[in-house]
Design a protein around this nucleic acid. Sequence first.
DNA 1: GTTTCATTGAGGGAAATCCCTCATTTTGCT
DNA 2: AGCAAAATGAGGGATTTCCCTCAATGAAAC
Lengths: 239, 239
Amino acid sequence: MTGSPVAEQVLRSALAIEGAESLAAIEAEVRAIASPLGYDRFILFSASAVGDQVVERIYWVEGDWFGDGEDVDAETYVRRCPVTRHVLETREPFFWTKTIAMDGELYKIVRYPRGQGIHGLQIPVFGPLGLEGAMSLGGSQIDASRRARLSLGLIATTAFFSARRLLEAAAEAVGPLSEREREVLSWTAAGRRQVEIAATLGLSERTVENHLRRIRKRLGVATTPQAIRVAIRNGDIAG
Amino acid sequence: MTGSPVAEQVLRSALAIEGAESLAAIEAEVRAIASPLGYDRFILFSASAVGDQVVERIYWVEGDWFGDGEDVDAETYVRRCPVTRHVLETREPFFWTKTIAMDGELYKIVRYPRGQGIHGLQIPVFGPLGLEGAMSLGGSQIDASRRARLSLGLIATTAFFSARRLLEAAAEAVGPLSEREREVLSWTAAGRRQVEIAATLGLSERTVENHLRRIRKRLGVATTPQAIRVAIRNGDIAG
DNA sequence: GTTTCATTGAGGGAAATCCCTCATTTTGCT
DNA sequence: AGCAAAATGAGGGATTTCCCTCAATGAAAC
């Protein structure tokens, strides 16, 4: 489609992104790699695989994602987009195509985008807790080769972690679990219900519930089952 | 230390690994990239933190990891190694150094390995379920630049997923849980709610609920959080 | 051909969990 | 003493999970 990505440039940009001290610097590097490949719109966001909410926080939006006359803001658009939701179901970067049908826009996940419309590449980013973010790149004439996908995958992954480092500096100050919290969680892992744990420890059900909520918050998870896994992994409770 | 990685070669190898049809082909590509950087021993394995057990399955071991006269097998060595355990606690590739002290071997996680001894790079690999595997590379004279780390990170990540695709293809159900049940439980451990899992797997909420109930019954537990722990213990799902 | 089991789905209702906020007491630390 | 964090508890409402039963399909086993 356009020139194939220059490998040297890709590595160099990834390193630059890794050490970037501002979001603008990250954006510039991404553009430098993506533009020659035909991508001219970008979305970078943190995501959690939990809750109905896929998108957690948008780090960067750029380009004509919405078309003229659309009066949706970036947040709404990204959150509603079916392509965005698809990151929950995949473990690999994927291409998509948006065509204008009679009854509105039609998104499709495709192997190789071609033909009329806006095409794009969506790259999920994974971490210790599973899906942690994603980057979307789009354009009307894009390089959709495996090589481009691999290159942009590296760039996007690096960009996400770097952007998060910059923007969520003081966000996740999660401490370790307290003694009481470990105790409650251990009983939970042992199959006890909140009311039973309350009786065992001589607490009210409310307190047990409050402890569990605080535990989830601390561990940065959404559900108690997930808290069990994370706590086991962290060594907070016995596996 | 040695020549810096040729970016073009890195991208090419990553693509080759991605499409590889045999483990040997993957190994060859990794060697081609890693050797010039001074790495001559490799371990590739799937991982999960099941209590004491970090390593799940070793895909590939090569090189002089153990020294002469050592009569430990690869499994034991990798499982015992403190460096291996450290992948549980990190979200980034890291360098380590092994020095021979009077009272045995001493491993240290370092920013830039130098001096005498064996040095290495450990690269955790993440997926939708969190930590899913890792690759260890070692050598006595290694390139420990950020550039090398980034390049090998890409290579290792690609290699892991490709190797798993090849080797776990015919993995059959060994546990008491069926394939579908394991799948549902894994997503639960990853923090998904029933309705979300239903959407992801294309099932009705009812079906997911039924699966979970059957899982609890099979494992002989009362609650889903407990099922998570028991399943992790049994190795039915990743820790 | 019959039986078994995995997989899928549902109705209806009970139980449990989860979310928000607010408040009190205790404990550890400077 | 004074502050911060842990630990405790509650109100009130929204979601989610759980439990019972019932049922249809398809594939594998006998």
